[in-house]
Structure formats: C-alpha cells, structure tokens
Design a binder for these strands. Structure first.
Length: 119
DNA sequence: CATCGAACCAACC
DNA sequence: GGTTGGTTCGATG
C-alpha cells in the first residue's frame, strides 16, 4: 500500500489510504458548478493521473465527496465507476450548473485550478 | 478535430 | 507476471 510521492523536489513515501484522505479534502474545495482535472490533482500530489482515477474509484463517500467534479484535462468528461456510470456523472454536473460544449466535453470556462486554494 | 501508440502504476486476478 | 483502468502525451493525417 505504500507508494512513492514526488514532492517539492524530494521523494517521500506515502500510503494510498493517506492520499485518499488528501484527495477527498481537495475535492471538497471545488466550487459547485466548476470542475478540475485528474492531471491537476496528480501534479499537486506528485503521482500519476491514472492513480488519481483509481483514488476516485476508491472514494466510498460519493457523491458527498464530489469525485464527479473531476474530468480529463482536455475537458472530456472522463469516466465514473459508480452505479449509473458516466450518465449519472453528466447528470450531476448539469444539475450543478456545469456547462457542456457537447455531450462529451465540458466548456473550458468551468475548469478551475485548485492551486488557488493551496497554501 | 480524430485516432493511435506508448508510458503510466497500484489493484486485481 | 499479465491485465486493467474515472489518463496523458506526442505523433500523425
């Protein structure tokens, strides 16, 4: 369960459980009607975007912890492993006021950087 | 814009 | 050990 994390020029150990808690906290910072990307979170944590996706899937408190507000870096809606799949994800986002460019992509203006809230 | 291949990395079998 | 994802990037047309 322990993995390596690249942080501020150093490599340190962390376990997936801890990362999951951090990710949850980050997700709660995303304003309603906005989204962020797997990449953004991956860069902040120093892990691979794929792992971020896995962490989302491990989130047992969805949609209270809004893992549906995370999309691909190019705006594509991405995936959703919970009951209902991407359909539910899209519905939740629309419900929150997220604008879509088309069925698969959110509008670029709803992407928000989490770094603003960091530090 | 769309598709493709490769790198990604812990979980799962 | 091989496969599988809630991905990304660069190359190509």
């Amino acid at each position: 369960m322990t993995i390596l994390v690249y942080e501020e020029g150093n490599v340190r150990k962390a376990n997936v459980k801890d990362l999951l808690e951090i990710v949850k906290a980050l997700l709660l910072l995303i304003p309603i009607g906005k989204v962020t990307s797997y990449k953004e979170i991956a860069l902040m944590l120093g892990v691979s975007p794929r792992l971020v996706g896995r962490l989302m899937a491990m989130n047992d408190e969805a949609p209270i912890v809004p893992c549906h507000r995370v999309v691909r870096s190019n705006g594509h809606i991405g995936g959703y492993s919970l009951e209902g799949g991407v359909e539910i994800k899209r519905r939740l986002l629309i419900l929150e006021g997220v604008k879509f460019r088309n069925r698969e992509y959110v509008s670029s203006e709803v992407m928000v950087s989490l770094k603003k809230f960091y530090k």
